[in-house]
């Protein structure tokens, strides 16, 4: 399962809650990491043939394939556009943030 932002996460409130050394549970995402995106990828599910090339190419693992349709995890997508560039069906378009 793709790790997702843990919205229930709360910071250690005491020494006892601190992690030991530099280790924590695997896949524990505690903060959004995508604030500087200029364009965001938008997948057109009518054109998408579920070839998963975008899922393979995404350098941040931000493409979600768990639902019926592919989607983008905007909490971690940096807006690099590689998915749109690699999509053989031009099913992904880069849309200016704020629009």
């Amino acid at each position: 399962m793709k790790p997702r932002l843990n919205k229930d996460y709360r910071l250690p409130a005491s020494e006892e809650e601190m992690t030991f050394g530099t280790a924590c549970a695997t896949g524990l995402l505690t903060a959004v990491n995508s604030g500087w995106r200029t364009f965001r990828p938008v997948i057109d599910s009518m054109k998408c043939v579920h070839c998963l090339i975008c899922w393979v190419c995404c350098p941040d693992g931000a493409i979600d394939r768990e639902g019926r349709e592919l989607s983008v995890d905007y909490d971690y997508c940096k807006g690099c556009g590689i998915c749109a560039h690699e999509c053989p069906r031009q099913a992904i378009s880069m849309v200016k943030e704020g629009k």
């Binding site: 910071l11 006892e16 809650e17 992690t19 030991f20 280790a23 505690t30």
Partner: peptide, 12 residues
């Protein structure tokens, strides 16, 4: 800073 609320001692 992540923690998982268990195994905090690191030794068990």
């Amino acid at each position: 800073m992540p923690h998982d609320g268990k195994n905090q001692s690191g030794v068990q």
